[in-house]
Amino acid sequence: MNTAPQHQLRHHDSGQWLSHFVGHVLIVCPRCGGRAAVVPRPGLPKPESWDELVFTPRRLVCAGCGTTADWDPAAKGSAGVALGGPEDPYFRRPLWLQARCAGEVLWAYNLDQVTELTAYVGAQLRERGKPRSNRSMLSRLPPWMKAAANRAEVLAGLARLRELATRSAPADRSDAVEDWGEVRR
């Protein structure tokens, strides 16, 4: 059964900000090098706004080796949270979902973001949401991702990210992570 999304001719930007995707971030474990996750700490109320979501205390968890760590905005300084780029905004670990693509590094926080990017990149007609804000994740994508000339390569890169999301062993991680100076285990 093919679980990859079907490409549509039209995509409407719903205006979601990048912060919408930080609820579950797949990263490289600092201990074993396998896939770990950064999630809101259990037992806390569900965030009701984007800033509550971004600044909710987090927990790093690795199912492979059992590593855990906590991040608290009060202790770490919430000014240190920077969204965007191939590292998680809390523990500054490399993202699990990254791949070399069109001479750049394609990255995503999680499978939901991969799905949204695939729908957008694969669409022939891309419509902006209302209000026409420049704050949506899609409006802020780099030009190389939006270029029709790169569409096939970016879609192939997103398919690689989708496949990476199903893997968790240290040897499965992307070679794009090697730029972090870490040795593949």
Rank of each mutant, 00 (worst) to 15 (best):
Glu182Gly: 13
Arg92Trp: 11
Arg41Trp: 01
Pro89Ile: 03
Asp72Cys: 09
Arg151Ala: 05
Leu161Ser: 01
Ile27Gly: 10
Leu141Ala: 05
Thr56Lys: 00
Asp112Met: 11
Arg162Met: 11
Leu95Met: 03
Pro131Met: 08
Ala123Gln: 11
Gly84Ala: 04
Arg59Met: 13
Ala36Thr: 11
Glu178Thr: 15
Leu125Gly: 06
Arg93Met: 13
Arg160Phe: 05
Gln113Met: 10
Gly33Phe: 15
Val105Asp: 02
Pro42Trp: 14
Phe91Gln: 04
Asp172Ser: 11
Val28His: 12
Asp13Phe: 04
Arg160Gly: 06
Pro131His: 00
Val28Phe: 05
Ala4Arg: 11
Val81Glu: 12
Trp144Gln: 03
Gln113Pro: 06
Ser174Tyr: 05
Val105Asn: 02
Phe21Trp: 06
Arg160Thr: 12
Pro142Cys: 01
Arg128His: 12
Asp172Asn: 06
Gly15Trp: 01
Leu117Ile: 10
Thr3Ser: 15
Arg185Met: 07
Leu53Phe: 06
Trp107Ala: 08
Lys76Asp: 15
Glu127Met: 06
Ser133Ala: 14
Trp144Pro: 03
Ala63Gly: 15
Ser168Pro: 03
Pro47Thr: 14
Cys62Ile: 03
Pro86Glu: 09
Ala176Trp: 04
Gly129Pro: 03
Glu178Val: 15
Met137Ala: 08
Arg151Asn: 08
Gly77Thr: 02
Arg59Phe: 00
Arg59Cys: 08
Asp179His: 10
Gly129Cys: 07
Asn110Thr: 08
Leu26Val: 08
Arg100Asn: 06
Ala171Asn: 10
His12Gly: 13
Leu164Glu: 13
Ser78Asn: 13
Tyr120Gln: 00
Leu155Met: 04
Leu117Gln: 00
Phe55Glu: 13
Val114Arg: 02
Trp107His: 12
Arg126Met: 07
Thr67Gly: 01
Val154Ser: 09
Thr166Glu: 15
Ser14Glu: 15
Gln6Thr: 12
Glu52His: 03
Val105Ile: 14
Glu87Leu: 09
Pro131Arg: 05
Ala99Leu: 07
Pro57Thr: 06
Tyr90Cys: 02
Asn110Tyr: 11
Ala119Lys: 10
Arg31Ile: 09
Cys101Ala: 11
Asp112Ile: 02
Arg151Ser: 10
Gly103Ile: 03
Val154Pro: 13
Trp17His: 12
Gly80Phe: 02
Gly181Ser: 00
Val121Phe: 11
Tyr109Lys: 05
Gly33Asn: 11
Arg92Phe: 09
Leu164Asp: 15
Pro5Val: 15
Ser174Glu: 08
Ala79Cys: 06
Ala102Pro: 07
Gly122Ala: 12
Ala108Asp: 00
Val25Ser: 01
Arg58Thr: 00
Arg184Ala: 14
Pro89Glu: 10
Gly157Met: 01
Arg92Tyr: 11
Ala159Glu: 15
Phe21His: 04
Glu104Ile: 04
Cys62Met: 01
